[in-house]
Design a protein around this nucleic acid. Structure first.
Lengths: 250, 250
DNA sequence: ATAGGTCTGTTCGGTAACGCACATAGCCTA
DNA sequence: TAGGCTATGTGCGTTACCGAACAGACCTAT
């Protein structure tokens, strides 16, 4: 069994295709390794490839002039990079960085654009994903204005947990601070509070989530809202959902 | 000359079509009045119509649970409502309210979806617009986090000015505060500062911009960034730009 | 074992918002 | 001309951040 076949069915967007459609599409992809710190997209640059993560986490980060990068969302096997290609624009609005190693199906942007037209309903599925992504950014814009850091931190940790499918996260407070667009001391304070509530514990770049439900309660509703929205929109009719068990190369 | 013909060529997105394409499309539209306060879309509701403003201003507002509505962008004749239709989703993510009376070309959402497929390159143009809109929200998300109220207020006033094509705006501090997601007193303070700098003056719901360049200097760069991005993306190649002089019904 | 790097905790003063309450000022109508 | 409504100004205490600096704790390498 080839590596490509092994990854078959392990991205939730591609799972919305029929078996034959997916087989066809994945045939145009190559399975690549995502290494921690890899830069997959640079804002303003033309993107060469579109990625469908299979395992691992990629951060999608916006920078505005005069300010640091801000993590807009984390992308795992529920999503894709880069939605700009999907909208017919080859310029990336964001930076994309691998935050957790793994694998992704990669396809040249031009091939992707072609396949998008060829495979029936593929554009329908992915436009929905674009809608969900748009909605997520709307949520973030309001969240950044209204919600407290401690709640936003809890939300970010939950997003990590979802995509890592693990309660052990490898991320320092410094990194979390950068992602959230705040100072490291702010995260220390917020994380300390979460720890005192026995929701998480951490030490030198390792965060362990002990009480998932408690953490959800401490998070702003944005976490739940985004998740519900994804499920609601992506699984609304006309999809060919099926779950092929995931197998990965060693 | 009919009212429809009068509005022909007065929306910048439709101007990117060829004459015959536009004629075709506008034939499926009706020209309606936009009255101050009209609610054109409700979050979570199915959208019945898509709007291409000709004159007037519509606010596009996101609400997250437990917080007030927040203005995401203002839409004038440079844009359209609702990009969700464009992405094949009939549910509006935002509320849309007329902030300045005017006119718009209105088309049933289903007819719009049909026309989108029929008219060559129309979807290409509008997907680019979706990209620009996505980028705007990204900008807002960071802006809300990093920029000061006074700068954000200046930005909002400039966005009004652009779309009103007038230096006299009819909006109270209370309304501006709601749009920005802050207290009215915050706006009083910020607006007072702008007035003391002789950039604007105001009284009882009338704001007059005296020094446009000064106001731009007081605004966060987000204003310029968004504008440049629109021009850059919307006028990049493969468009059939032409400007038909605008004439409106009395 | 010691040294140097990385990660986390704490402290200080400052500021831009917040909530709440009340004061003034312009405009409209009776 | 008085009364009432709306829009704007102000004042006070509180809070959630900020920037800068430093202290301790832990890890690894020489």
């Amino acid at each position: 069994m080839s590596i490509i076949q092994a990854a078959f069915g392990s991205n939730r967007l591609l799972n919305l295709l029929t078996d034959s459609q997916r087989k066809n599409f994945v045939g145009s992809c190559e399975l690549i390794n995502l290494h921690l710190g890899d830069v997959l997209a640079v804002p303003g640059d033309t993107v060469a490839y579109v990625y469908f993560p299979v395992e691992g986490i990629i951060s999608w980060e916006k920078q505005i002039i005069g300010s640091p990068f801000l993590v807009v969302t984390l992308i795992g096997n529920e999503g894709m990079l880069c939605i700009n290609s999907l909208l017919g624009v080859d310029i990336s609005p964001c930076r994309a960085i691998v935050q957790k190693s793994g694998f992704a199906l990669r396809i040249p942007a031009s091939t992707f654009m072609h396949q998008l037209k060829q495979i029936a309903d593929f554009d329908v599925i992915l436009k929905r994903y674009a809608y969900v992504s748009y909605n997520q950014v709307l949520q973030l814009a309001a969240c950044n204005l209204f919600h407290l850091l401690e709640n936003r931190l809890a939300r970010l940790l939950l997003m990590f947990q979802d995509r890592a499918q693990s309660d052990e996260l490898h991320v320092t407070q410094e990194q979390l601070a950068e992602m959230l667009g705040v100072r490291r001391v702010g995260v220390t304070k917020a994380a300390g509070s979460l720890q005192r509530q026995n929701l998480i514990s951490y030490s030198r770049g390792n965060v362990i989530i002990h009480d998932l439900n408690g953490l959800k309660a401490s998070s702003c509703i944005c976490y739940q809202t985004d998740k519900k929205n994804y499920e609601h929109i992506m699984h609304a009719q006309t999809t060919h959902a099926n779950n092929v068990p995931m197998q990965l190369p060693s």
